[in-house]
Design a protein around this nucleic acid. Structure first.
Length: 469
DNA sequence: CAACAAAGCGCG
DNA sequence: AAAGCGCGCTTTGTTG
């Protein structure tokens, strides 16, 4: 149960609800011709690739085994069947089981993609296209109204942390990380006129900055304020025993996404170590001076990942053992105030049974430790963008602008920018997000920065790129 | 047949 | 002692 406890909280959600209703009403313009063509094209590709699973030379052996076991019931879309074929019939090593009561083999992408079996890679490609086709292309097409517009619901009073969500369709999870997927889906969203532009304005590092406002950790604040510092680079240097200069772009990326953020959200050295170790091979990481990362680690005495049983004590010379020390440095030395804040808020929750947010809400649900330390940060970070949305929308109305806010994605706003209004939108949104926000909420103790991406006039969301003024 | 759980995958 | 937070949507497989 989460509810506003201050006038400010009530007001934010009252006005937010009205502002989002207008966003829904504005709607997103969809290129249905593109969509229909792409659906047909993707249907065809899926048919061809699926046929390949049955007929290609390098797939025959697996398909034969499948047919033998399941006969008429053969379904190449069934992951339960796939798991049984791979790990029961073909006896491939390294399978792991799901945790449910009725356990089966894990067959997610992570468990499959390192396997040296053409069938598996083609299977994953088919599944990816199916996802693109059913959830996105067809799912979006189904919701387009008679005028070619999408009006997703932006739900405010639904999410446990008082974030928003989007449904019918969900427009907050359109593919972007995988370039192939992004190129299939995102071109369908266009501005509503050839002279207008799609834009996306986002708050940089919204959750990390919000976390800093809660815990007031000196090191974290310095990392945010001082452009010469970089916590992902420094953590990468610790984790892989490198000099800062040796941290390459990809090594930093792995430290950020497999170590720093997971640890902030409550992960631990064991899982971080495993995921980082996998990434070294998958991304073929090399140091900035060109040494393969595994080789570098060997020269520092780390020769293997270590025992995969989390209950055994890590052995010196393993990466897991090393990461245990890195985790200790991370929480007890580098971010010790953040760590202390996590314990403080958890203890307070245990005493009182609730968590209050800086934005005026109280959460009195049953939470575990990770939830208690994450909810207020996630919710408040969203409230930064919600407050900005309300203000920007009001100002654009005041100036009788034709730019419309058409969507909202946790820390960003999606806009359909009117002809010759790009600069005005930039100036209004920039002032609201980086100045007015700080005047409204005195607890914001770090600078807030925002970024604008736009596509050229008439071009789709897929064409967006960063723009500076 | 509908309703449900589990697994999986997309995003911040 | 526990072991990454929050969502929505789709399919498969089970249950009654």
């Amino acid at each position: 149960m989460i509810t506003p406890i201050t006038t400010e909280g009530y007001k934010l959600f009252l006005e937010g609800q009205i502002a989002l209703a207008e966003v829904e009403h504005n709607g997103m313009c969809i290129d249905t011709v593109y969509l229909d063509n792409k659906i047909e094209e993707t249907d065809k590709r899926i048919r061809e690739l699926s046929a390949g699973l049955r007929k290609d030379k390098d797939c025959r052996q697996v398909f034969k085994a499948w047919k033998k076991k399941y006969g008429e019931k053969t379904n190449l879309g069934s992951r339960e069947q796939l798991g049984s074929i791979l790990f029961d019939v073909l006896k491939i090593e390294g399978g792991s089981s799901t945790g449910a009561a009725k356990a089966r083999w894990r067959t997610d992408k992570d468990a499959l993609e390192d396997m040296d079996l053409p069938f598996v890679h083609k299977f994953l490609e088919v599944e990816k296209l199916k996802k693109a086709n059913t959830t996105y292309l067809k799912g979006i097409r189904r919701e387009v109204d008679s005028k070619g517009f999408l009006h997703p619901s932006f739900n405010l009073n639904l999410v446990a942390t008082f974030r928003s969500s989007s449904s019918s369709p969900n427009t907050q999870n359109w593919p972007i990380r995988d370039p192939e997927m992004a190129a299939i889906i995102r071109p369908c969203m266009k501005p509503r006129h050839k002279d207008r532009q799609i834009g996306e304005k986002d708050l940089s590092g919204a959750e990390v900055r919000t976390a800093a406002c809660y815990c007031k950790d000196k090191a974290l604040i310095t990392y945010i304020c001082n452009k010469n510092t970089d916590m992902h680079r420094d953590t990468a240097a610790d984790a892989f025993i490198l000099k800062k200069k040796q941290v390459s772009k990809n090594i930093r990326y792995v430290a950020k996404n497999k170590c720093v953020f997971p640890m902030f959200y409550g992960s631990w050295y064991f899982d971080c170590a495993k995921n980082m170790w996998i990434s070294i091979d998958r991304m073929q990481l090399t140091t900035e001076d060109g040494i393969p990362l595994k080789k570098h680690l060997q020269s520092k005495g780390i020769t293997s990942l270590g025992d995969l049983n989390p209950n055994t004590e890590p052995v010196p010379g393993t990466f897991i053992h090393h990461m245990k020390k890195v985790e200790h440095t991370f929480w007890k030395v580098r971010f010790k105030q953040y760590d202390q804040w996590k314990w403080d808020i958890w203890n307070k929750y245990c005493e009182t049974g609730y968590i209050d947010t800086l934005t005026g809400f109280r959460c009195s649900a049953i939470m575990d430790r990770k939830q208690a330390t994450n909810y207020s940060i996630q919710g408040s970070a969203f409230h930064l963008i919600l407050w900005s949305l309300i203000k920007i929308q009001k100002q654009m109305k005041k100036y009788k602008m034709r730019t419309k806010i058409i969507g909202q994605i946790h820390d960003s706003l999606l806009v359909d920018i009117g002809k010759n209004e790009l600069r005005d939108f930039h100036e209004i949104s920039e002032k609201v997000m980086t100045q007015d926000l700080l005047k409204h909420w005195k607890w914001i103790c770090v600078p807030i920065e925002a970024e604008l991406e736009v596509a050229a006039a008439g071009k789709s969301w897929h064409e967006k790129h960063k723009i500076e003024f």
